[in-house]
């Protein structure tokens, strides 16, 4: 079997989507608060670039607007809020892995692969992007769940949620590129509110337990 090349537009967009997934894998093992936030910023930059590529390649001008808003919020505002509110915390989150890096990556690969193959059965077709990007989006969503589960520190868990949102944004680019800009912007502002609340709660957590680890959160059971 010779796989025909997908065409440079499809190839480039899929490659960008896969790059987001690779960054997501990076989050599994980031050891510093700043590194974690930076990875998120990188992922957000990639999805903004992807939005621009789709806007140009498939002539969906609203996506320019989306890209601008997503840069303003995810690349500028979110990291700013996170880092500002967490200035006084310990920057080290290295010891929060529930398992070894290699097993974590293997687990994530398995989960991501499951997402890849499951999404092939959805029967969703995209007007603007190759279907494989949807598979990547589903994989990103699943891997961010892995991230939230295997990392036991509040920062990684929060970033896991934001990355989950990035995965959903990617999915929305794929199957719902026509979503009115107003709604997209509303989603983004919602995310910003969530980020502020996450940051506040991280601070509350830090004040209460003097660490970013969630290993001590075992009081409430049953």
């Amino acid at each position: 079997m010779v796989a025909a090349p997908p065409g440079s537009y499809a190839g480039a967009t899929t490659a960008l989507a896969v790059l987001m997934l690779v960054i997501e894998f990076g989050m599994l093992q980031a050891t510093l608060l700043r590194a974690q936030v930076r990875l998120y910023v990188a992922q957000s930059v990639v999805i903004s670039v992807l939005a621009v590529v789709v806007a140009v390649g498939r002539e969906v001008p609203e996506l320019f607007g989306l890209a601008v808003f997503s840069v303003a919020l995810k690349v500028v505002a979110v990291p700013l809020v996170m880092l500002r509110l967490l200035r006084r915390t310990d920057p080290e989150i290295a010891g929060s892995r529930a398992m070894g890096v290699a097993s974590m990556v293997l687990l994530a690969v398995v989960v991501g692969a499951f997402g890849f193959f499951a999404s092939a059965r959805f029967g969703l077709v995209s007007p603007v992007l190759p279907t494989a990007t949807l598979a990547v989006a589903v994989a990103i969503v699943l891997v961010s769940f892995v991230l939230m589960i295997v990392r036991r520190d509040v920062v990684s868990q929060a970033i896991g949620f934001f990355a989950l949102e990035n995965g959903v944004s990617l999915a929305s680019l794929v199957v719902a590129a026509g979503l009115p800009l107003l709604l997209e912007v509303a989603f983004l502002f919602d995310l910003l509110v969530a980020v502020v609340v996450f940051a506040v709660l991280i601070r509350v957590h830090h004040e209460q337990s003097e660490s970013l680890s969630t290993a001590g959160l075992t009081e409430l059971q049953g």
Binding site: V141, F161, F198, E219, L220
Partner: peptide, 21 residues
């Protein structure tokens, strides 16, 4: 502002947000 409150809030916001994702 209790420790348990912080724990409950964190679990809540994380799980509910993931669900809403």
């Amino acid at each position: 502002g209790t420790r348990a409150g912080a724990e409950a809030a964190w679990k809540y916001v994380l799980l509910a947000s993931a669900g809403l994702g």
